[in-house]
Amino acid sequence: LLLGAAPGALNAELAAPADATAQDRALPELALGLPAELARRRPDIAAAEAQLHAATARVGVAVAELYPRVTLGASFGNESVGHERFGDWGSRQWQVGPTLSLPIFDMGRRRSTVTLRELQQQEAAVAFQQTVLKAWHEIDGALSAYAAERRRQAELAERERESADALALAQARYAGGLTDFGVALDARRTLLQAQRDRAQSRSRLAVDWVAVCKALGSAPPEEAVAAAASGPPI
């Protein structure tokens, strides 16, 4: 649904075996945020902006109705005293000329229409502002959760490396007869727990990345991700 594709369009890609290191590389570092213009691609922001433009245009149309209007028109018809001569060439007549419309008797209604259109424009502006603020909160929350999970994943990776070193040391000490097998068993249990926590963190990081893409309306382009480290953050 996020990609705008039909159901089943990604079956082949999802069924292919994935490399864990490739998945890690596919998730970028967004600690500094993303360029703010990416949020303009959200459908709700685009819709609110279009409604504001339409309301502004209606104000201009209502203001134009306050002034006299000159139109150039033409007419053609038949006029005859008797029906028997209605189809003769001489009964045909036409005229071309301007028409002047003066808003004299309904000026109050037209001014009220202008006031109404201005109020609708203000309402659309408030709705646009609320939509943008809601989008900022959603994007900021998604980016914060994504950055926090990346930091947690880095800490878990370090803990996994330390657990692996501790297991190697415990096995060496057990092989040398300095400790019993329980110490090596506890070290292996600690390493397995660290690996399990890191796998769960990798899964949560992928979910958080989907939340970032959903908050932005689509996945950010690669050039925006590459410039996130140096560009203005959201």
Rank of each mutant, 00 (worst) to 15 (best):
L2E: 13
L2Q: 14
L3Y: 14
A5K: 14
N11F: 13
N11V: 15
A15G: 13
D19A: 12
A20V: 03
A20S: 09
T21L: 15
Q23D: 01
R25A: 10
A31Q: 08
A31E: 01
A31H: 01
A31L: 03
L32D: 12
P35W: 01
A39H: 00
R41K: 10
P43C: 05
A48S: 10
A48V: 04
A50M: 10
A50T: 12
L52F: 11
A55G: 01
R58T: 09
V59L: 02
V61R: 06
A62D: 07
A62Y: 06
A62L: 05
V63P: 09
E65S: 03
Y67N: 03
L72R: 02
G73T: 05
A74N: 09
S75C: 09
F76G: 02
N78T: 15
V81A: 15
G82L: 02
H83L: 15
E84D: 15
E84M: 13
F86T: 03
F86R: 00
F86P: 13
G87I: 14
W89D: 05
W89V: 10
S91I: 05
Q93C: 13
G97S: 05
L100V: 12
L100I: 11
S101N: 14
S101V: 12
S101L: 13
P103L: 06
I104V: 06
I104N: 06
M107L: 15
G108P: 04
R109P: 11
R109L: 14
T113Q: 14
T115I: 04
R117D: 03
E118C: 00
L119E: 15
Q121S: 08
Q121P: 00
Q122M: 06
A125M: 09
A125P: 03
A127E: 15
F128K: 14
V132T: 11
K134F: 13
W136A: 04
E138Q: 07
E138A: 00
E138L: 10
G141Q: 12
L143K: 09
A145V: 07
Y146A: 05
Y146R: 07
A148C: 04
R150N: 11
R151S: 11
R151G: 08
R152C: 10
R152S: 10
Q153M: 09
Q153A: 02
E155G: 12
E155S: 13
R159C: 04
R159K: 03
E160M: 02
R161S: 02
A166G: 08
L167Y: 03
L167I: 01
A168K: 05
L169K: 00
A170G: 00
A172R: 01
R173I: 01
Y174A: 07
F181N: 07
F181Y: 12
V183I: 08
A184Q: 08
A187Q: 01
R188W: 10
R189H: 13
T190I: 11
Q193E: 08
A194N: 11
Q195C: 02
R196I: 11
D197S: 02
D197Q: 03
A199M: 06
A199S: 06
Q200P: 08
S203V: 14
R204M: 04
L205Q: 01
L205G: 03
L205V: 09
L205R: 00
L205K: 07
V207Q: 11
C213D: 06
K214P: 07
L216K: 07
G217S: 09
S218P: 07
S218A: 13
P220F: 07
P221I: 04
E223A: 10
A224C: 05
A229Y: 03
A229R: 01
S230I: 13
G231D: 12
P232M: 06
P233G: 09
